[in-house]
Each structure stands twice: as structure tokens, then as C-alpha cells.
């Protein structure tokens, strides 16, 4: 009986413990910022892994999300709205929402899961203890390069996603509604403001930091063996997805 009553209470306590531990890790991360020079090569390596190697999947997902937006717009516009408005809808949808959101969700799987699995495996095989025993700061050596790389590279990935999303939208609009590039750009310019692009980049930096720091946190505090690593990786993906959706709303409410 007591167990039934205390189970949810214990869950709430563990939730807040987790949040407290996450913010403590962020404090340690900011403390380790002073050692960024020592970890510069590591950071560049991570920028390659997180950024450059994610480009193909970002191109693919953003291209199709732009295309599907154009198809759906065309379907809803039917004959009442001029076809060049597809450019407006695709442009606004991609820049404000689709490119940052789809990129964030895709990279949660590709980058977040990888980071947790890597750091978690290092934890359960005592490699992090070994680093500490060799007088290294594991937060500066393992977490700082990944979080820096994520925060720096995400905006570049979003810019690529913006470009291919809009391009995919035009390809699809051209194929479905015979919209010329001139018309599409005319529509795109109709509602476009530079702030739309800046807002996408603000989202990119926020999502980049959130995904990598959540992934590092779950990896760093992994317990148990292979099962623990698997569990931590799953939790990372779930928590990151929910956090991205939540941050997406918060940022929209704050800046739009």
C-alpha cells in the first residue's frame, strides 16, 4: 500500500533530482570553458562528426519536407488563391518551423543517441574514471567539445536545411502547379522578413545546445552495463524530442 502511494512521490523527487544534477553539470561545463583551447582539436573533430557528417541526412529530410509543404499548399489552395502564394507558404513554413524542427528531431536521433552511447559506454567501462585518474577534467575533455560543436554547427545545418527546404518546395510546386521560379520567388518575398531567418538561427543555437547537453548528461550519468547504455540512449532521444517541442513553443511565444 505504502509502495503504491510513495511510487509517484519518489518519481517526482527523482525528476527534480535529475533536473538539479543536469544544471550542476552545466555549471561544471561553464567552469570548463576556460580550457577550450586545450580541447580545440577535440572540438574540431566533434564539429566534423556532428556537423559535416549530418549534412546528407539534413539535405534529404529538408528537401522532402519542403516538397510536401508545397504539395499540401497546392492541394488546399485549389483554384481560389494565386499559385505563387505557394512560395510564401513554403518559405515561411520552412524558415520558421520545418527546417529547425525537422533538423532538431533528426539530429536527436543521429547526434544525441551517438553522444549518449559513446559517453555512456566510457562510463560503464571505467574510461571516464581513468580520465579522472590521469588528472583530466572529463567534463572539459568529453562534454565541452560536444556541446560547443553542437551549438556552433546547428545554425549551419539549419541554413542548409532552409536552402534545400525552399528548393524542394519550388521543385514540387513547379511539378504540381507549374509554378515558375520567378513566381515562386515572388511569393517567397511576399511575406519574408529577415527576422524569420534570424529566428530560425536562434532556434538552431538553442536546439543544438539542448540536444548535445541532454545527451552528454545522460551519457555521463549512465549506470549498469550494456543495458544501462541502451536505457540512457532511449531516454536521451525521448527527453530531447520533448524538450525540442517545448522549446519550440517557448521561443515562438517569446519572439514572434
Amino acid at each position: 500500500m505504502f509502495r503504491v502511494i510513495f511510487y509517484p512521490i519518489r518519481g517526482v523527487i527523482q525528476f527534480f533530482e535529475g533536473i538539479g544534477r543536469y544544471f550542476l553539470l552545466q555549471l561544471m561545463l561553464f567552469r570548463s570553458l576556460t580550457s577550450w583551447r586545450l580541447n580545440l582539436i577535440n572540438t574540431i573533430d566533434q564539429m566534423m562528426l556532428i556537423g559535416a557528417r549530418s549534412i546528407p541526412i539534413i539535405i534529404l529530410t529538408s528537401l522532402f519536407s519542403g516538397m510536401v509543404t508545397a504539395v499540401q499548399s497546392a492541394y488546399q489552395f485549389s483554384s481560389f488563391i494565386p499559385s505563387y502564394y505557394v512560395g510564401s507558404v513554403v518559405g515561411e513554413s520552412v524558415l520558421l518551423e520545418l527546417a529547425p524542427m525537422i533538423t532538431g528531431l533528426v539530429l536527436t536521433g543521429r547526434v544525441g543517441a551517438t553522444i549518449t552511447a559513446e559517453i555512456g559506454t566510457m562510463r560503464v567501462t571505467e574510461q571516464i574514471d581513468a580520465l579522472e585518474s590521469l588528472s583530466f577534467d572529463p567534463v572539459g575533455y568529453l562534454i565541452l567539445p560536444r556541446v560547443l560543436a553542437g551549438t556552433i554547427m546547428f545554425p549551419f545545418l539549419i541554413i542548409i536545411a532552409d536552402f534545400f527546404g525552399v528548393f524542394g518546395g519550388w521543385v514540387s510546386a513547379h511539378a504540381q502547379m507549374n509554378v515558375s521560379m520567378f513566381e515562386f520567388i515572388k511569393g517567397f518575398k511576399q511575406w519574408f522578413t529577415p527576422w524569420d531567418a534570424w529566428f530560425g538561427l536562434i532556434k538552431a543555437v538553442t536546439f543544438g545546445f539542448a540536444i548535445t547537453s541532454i545527451a552528454c548528461y545522460h551519457g555521463y550519468y549512465t549506470k549498469g552495463g550494456a543495458q544501462g547504455v541502451g536505457k540512457a540512449t532511449t531516454i536521451t532521444v525521448v527527453v530531447s524530442c520533448v524538450t525540442i517541442v517545448f522549446l519550440d513553443y517557448v521561443l515562438a511565444a517569446l519572439f514572434l
Partner: peptide
């Protein structure tokens, strides 16, 4: 810690 060397059960080599 620089005075201390530690050998771990599994080796704990950076893989």
C-alpha cells in the same frame, strides 16, 4: 592525482 597511477580491473583503455 598526478602522484597516483591507477590500474583498472578491465584496463579501462580509451577504445
Amino acid at each position: 592525482r598526478q602522484k597516483i597511477g591507477m590500474v583498472f580491473q578491465s584496463g579501462a583503455l580509451f577504445d
